[in-house]
């Protein structure tokens, strides 16, 4: 049973009070003409997932609290939450640096923004 804290309203609850929204930071390939999106890009958007054994970044919704979506960084082996952050933000820089595998690849060129 996970214990989760909503960074928006500050409530602490068990996982049943929240709704898991799966992997975070998935961006839909943007274009004004769908025909310009390659089949590979569409597959990556819909189906490819980092699924790391370790540090993961995901979305949660504060279902029985304020109702807002937020982001969380969690270790998928220990289930320990490393950080909660706004739905509009990237993770704290030290966690982007700690990411492994395809998450590390994803954050590689994003750390300058913070």
């Amino acid at each position: 049973m996970l214990e989760i804290k909503c960074p928006v309203c500050g409530v602490v609850g068990e996982e049943g009070d929240f709704h898991g929204g799966g992997q975070a930071h998935i961006t839909r390939p943007a274009t004004d003409n769908p025909a310009n999106i390659s089949d590979e890009a569409q597959r990556d958007y819909l189906f490819m997932r980092h699924n790391p054994k370790g540090l993961h970044f995901e979305r949660w919704r504060c279902d029985r609290g304020c109702g807002k979506w937020f982001h969380a960084a969690r270790d998928t082996v220990t289930n320990e939450f490393k950080a909660y952050y706004s739905i509009r933000e990237l993770p704290p820089v030290e966690l982007m640096k700690a990411a492994t595998g395809s998450w590390a690849e994803y954050f590689k060129d994003k750390m300058v923004t913070k």
Partner: peptide, 13 residues
């Protein structure tokens, strides 16, 4: 369970 997990220990919910 509704979230990614490698702990081989599921949720009571």
């Amino acid at each position: 369970d509704a979230y990614n997990n490698y702990a081989q220990r599921g949720s009571f919910a």
